[in-house]
Amino acid sequence: MSTISRRSFIKTGIAAGSVMLASPKDARPAEVKTLPPDRRGVLVDTTVCIGCRRCEWACKNAHSLPAGDITDYDDESVFANKRRPDDKALTIVNRYEKIGDERFPTNVKIQCMHCEQPACLSACIVGAFKKDDTGAVVWDTDKCIGCRYCMVACPFQIPAFEYEKALDPKIMKCDFCIDRQKNGELPACVEICPAEALTFGKRSELITLAHRKIELFPERYYNKVYGEAEVGGTSWLYLASREFMELGFLKLGTNPAPGVSESIQHGIFAYFVPPIAFYALLGGVMWLNKNRNRGEE
């Protein structure tokens, strides 16, 4: 038995073939959860935002994070850097100067986009994320094990982790003020915004509104509603005066955020048929080989 016999080669081939069957080729898309038609959203009009950062203050207060004094937020020196939301600030505002016209910078508020088909929800090992009927994507502290796969998955790089905590570190991100919403209140940032740059409402109506604005003021708006189609749509929507990529927005496709990952997963595990078939096949091969050996003896 120094060379591989043709028979065992064929068997190896069968085994390899059955593994291949379980590859992405026969993948099916996962079921999409139907979302309620009256789910909420926020339309952020960056052409209106004055960069007062009151939303940052209100957000911290609403989430029991150290907020400091409201006048601290008048300090415009923070605009020197492009900041990101983190575990201590769930929303922040960045300023983008307009080259050649410093009088009219664009201010962009950043927070969780609350995807229609969130990657974090799909990725989470224990299903700690939920897409609420309000549209909010919320995280459940009682389930989370702190693996941070949601952070790997998020296309907008939003979830933050409390790295400094040894016990019960949390995943921190905007929760769309779900508790306030359940009490009939507006999200804290929307409520405080003095310029009314944030419009809260039904997502479907906000999309109509956004397009109407673009139609009425074509010279004011860049003709696109960011979030309408990105990664399959997001609850938060943006209007801007120029190309979104110049304002720190990512160029993302329109495929749902989880991408092909779910299809692959469901392809390999189609009702456990491929693994069980593979098991049966290996069992058969083992049995044949055992009998062959017995015969030779």
Binding site: A30, S122, A123, C124, I125, V126, G127, A128, K143, C147, Y149, P258, S261, E262, I264, Q265, H266, F269
Partner: peptide
């Protein structure tokens, strides 16, 4: 706590 969609 199962999440069948998750590769992890």
């Amino acid at each position: 706590m199962w999440n069948g969609n998750s590769a992890l």
